[in-house]
Amino acid sequence: MHLLPLFTLLATVTAAALPFQKRTDTCSTASASTLASAKAAFTQAKLVPDLVPSFHPTLSIQANFNGKQVALGNSFSATETFMEPAVSFSAEPGFNPAKTKYTIIFTDHDAPGPAAPVLKDFLHLIISDAQPSCIINQARKTLAIYQPLTPLSIAAHRYTLLVYRQPPNYMPPLSVNYLPGSRAAFDLNGYVAQGGLTLVGGNFLGEGLSSTVCAITPGCTQDGKGYSA
């Protein structure tokens, strides 16, 4: 006699929960071919092991500067990258996108020039508490505000976007590199180890100075070192 009301209540609660569950389940993940392409591009560009010791991506990163997409090493000019890029990424298999948060780091391993990168890694941006693009209401925190890309060599720099999964109850490490005037010599791998972060995705672009711009830019060199002797 009392079972029917109970079944009705359960059905109502289940139905009410379905819309949120559906949004979570429809979060897209990267294909195996997309992840394989990213891994191959990082290896070919020698970002492994120059920048990171290993790279086994489990999600894909989409980034654009005013609509122009970053595509695993394509070229940009300084005027195109003056404003902060829009960065999003796919969900990661095996992790609830509504509850898992990530840190985005944008860095230059070739500062001031690839031939003599004495200022590596130069930090351009850090954002914590990011979530996959399917999560509409995010509370991202900018720890290091965007600093425009400023290569000082004709040789292209490898400007690299990395996404790291944060551990539960994550607290970002303290860093002087958050300050706008203290971005050189950022210890990327030390920062990652201190925070317990796990690398899960990456993308990168190439940017250098044209010979015309280099001719009027103080310190620019054509041999890739970045600073004249």
Rank of each mutant, 00 (worst) to 15 (best):
A11Q: 00
N203W: 04
T26V: 04
V192T: 03
C220I: 03
R183V: 06
F122C: 08
G67Y: 10
F89L: 03
A45D: 07
E207Q: 13
E80N: 05
P151Y: 10
V52W: 10
P151T: 08
A17N: 03
A144W: 04
L152Q: 11
S54D: 02
A91F: 05
Q194M: 11
Y170C: 07
V118C: 11
T103D: 01
I135E: 11
K141S: 15
S182V: 09
T26M: 01
G196M: 01
F89E: 02
S60T: 15
F55Y: 09
L119P: 09
C27Y: 02
N203L: 08
I105P: 04
V192R: 09
P168Q: 15
A111H: 04
A17M: 04
F82M: 10
S90D: 06
L18T: 01
L51G: 04
D121K: 02
K101P: 01
G195D: 07
M1A: 13
D121A: 09
A15C: 03
G73W: 00
L10T: 05
L161Q: 03
T43C: 02
G67S: 07
H157Q: 15
G73K: 08
G190R: 07
G190M: 11
L51W: 08
K101T: 06
T150K: 06
L209G: 09
N64P: 00
T103N: 02
P167L: 07
F55T: 09
L149Q: 14
G219L: 11
V200A: 14
P151E: 05
Q194H: 12
P5V: 00
G195N: 01
F82A: 15
A144E: 00
S128C: 15
F76N: 09
A17S: 03
S182Q: 12
L59R: 06
L10N: 00
A41H: 01
T24F: 09
V87W: 12
S210E: 12
K120T: 13
S77H: 14
Q147S: 07
N96M: 01
D110S: 05
Q62T: 07
F42H: 14
K141Q: 15
T34A: 05
L123F: 04
P218Q: 12
T198Y: 13
D129N: 14
A116Y: 05
L119D: 14
L152W: 13
V118E: 15
L149T: 14
I145T: 00
R158P: 01
N169S: 11
E92T: 11
P114T: 02
C220F: 06
T212L: 14
K101M: 13
T79D: 06
D129M: 03
S31Q: 05
Q62S: 03
T12I: 09
H124C: 11
F82G: 13
